[in-house]
Design a protein around this nucleic acid. Structure first.
Lengths: 238, 238
DNA sequence: GCGCCCTCTTTTGTCTTAGAAAATATGCCG
DNA sequence: CGGCATATTTTCTAAGACAAAAGAGGGCGC
């Protein structure tokens, strides 16, 4: 069972939501299955019904469960899970997800990030360009061996998403960034790979600066495909 | 103010969530702003604190608000709103969103649906192909002037997303489908446009059947760009 | 007068108890 | 045996009390 116990975060209902959420995405409760009734779970987790119900509302809002009087509460089919909820993605990351999970995630990334680079090249404002440049500078300055390597990389990509001036692009980025961070850490990408990726990042920046949307898209495509290969290699090696 | 009153749905906390959610995405409460404290809102909406708090948890789960003791509850910045939550998209649709909203939504659609068609052509199972075919048949049989015109269209696209065997693609589709339905209705696309779009849909189906991913992608691209033009025209006409 | 600590106040967080409403299961009656 | 009323289970809503977080302000020492 996915167990979050011991380290209860700030407030109880979040802890309960995270405990139950992890169980669900981890497969401890299967879709279609009815989970025990509220009082039973209250006893198991030693929380009040108020807190449990607040946690249930969180899970319901994310599409994981549905409750009805007399029938109880059951796990919804996976297609209703809101996969672009950052919290759900975190629960996935923590549950040692199947390789397909990360494959699918990367597939999505390879779909929308090149398009984002293309859009950014067309629509970015001067201020947004500066932010992208600053993010790139941060990558160059990142201390190897620290988390900066990963966070600055993600920051660079987020800056591009922001520069699309498309709210949905931004939302996608916000959603998956923490899952990506987890993936980067997990695959413990070697420093060499990071250094080798710098020219690719620079090329994207240059293309966006020049307003060359075709090149921006192509460069992003190239970057992501080599990055994915590297990740695959590193994960398999474990 | 976005007002959902009168027609309270099944349960109270959902009604409260939807009332407050509409106010937020409708701009009645601005990001960064603190909303009145719990007791005040309870009195205004004439609900118990229990229900209000359950509604708050829903809104918190969707990234719209955040609460802290003593400080109160405030609206989060838009970048934290989970734009791919179907419920949030519904609240948007109901609040007469800006044209940019639908432009951005369509921009996203033009990014991931061609990619989905491409993937589906590569990965679809025979069963999934049958479902796509059935959805197309439903389009051909749809009674003009009814909602079938819209729902069968959306069903066709959902079937393709399913056929990608990528959970994230499916989730994107589930999220935006009801917003699309609203958009279709709102733009009251003329029947001629629908009839003219049938060959394009058929072409996509044929390409997926043949496993021709390049053509599937190209056809989807073509379909979406003409569809977007039509929508623009119809919306402007109002 | 200035800075630090302690207390006070406000607001959300948690628990408890009680009863209402929904929806199935049961059993009585014709 | 069928249909209707009743019982039962579970979530839903309400209300009241206290705990905990986190500023705000006042008093004290220097």
């Amino acid at each position: 069972m996915a167990n979050q116990a011991n380290n209860r975060p700030q407030n109880i209902h979040n802890w309960v939501a995270s405990e139950l959420g992890s169980r669900i995405v981890g497969g401890f409760y299967a879709p279609g299955e009815y989970i025990p009734n509220e009082n039973t779970i209250c006893e198991e987790l030693e929380v009040s019904r108020t807190s449990l119900r607040e946690a249930f509302k969180v899970l319901t809002a994310k599409g994981l469960i549905e409750s009805r009087p007399k029938l109880g509460t059951r796990i919804r089919e996976r297609r209703h899970w809101n996969m672009f909820d950052p919290v759900i993605l975190n629960w996935f990351s923590q549950s040692k997800p199947s390789p397909e999970f990360y494959t699918s995630l990367y597939e999505i990334r390879e779909v929308f990030e090149p398009a984002a680079a293309e859009l950014a090249a067309k629509k970015r404002t001067p201020e947004q360009l500066e932010i992208i440049e600053a993010a790139y500078a941060k990558m160059e300055a990142a201390q190897l061996g620290t988390d900066e390597v990963y966070t600055s990389d993600i920051e660079f990509h987020m800056a591009i998403l922001d520069a699309t001036n498309n709210e949905f692009m931004v939302s996608l980025g916000v959603s998956i960034q923490s899952a990506l961070l987890e993936l980067f850490r997990l695959s413990s990408t070697i420093q060499d790979d990071f250094l080798q990726s710098l020219p690719g990042h620079k090329a994207i920046y240059t293309a966006i600066e020049a307003g060359d949307s075709v090149r921006a898209k192509a460069e992003m495509n190239k970057l992501l495909s080599t990055s994915q290969e590297t990740l695959k290699k590193n994960i398999e090696r474990e």
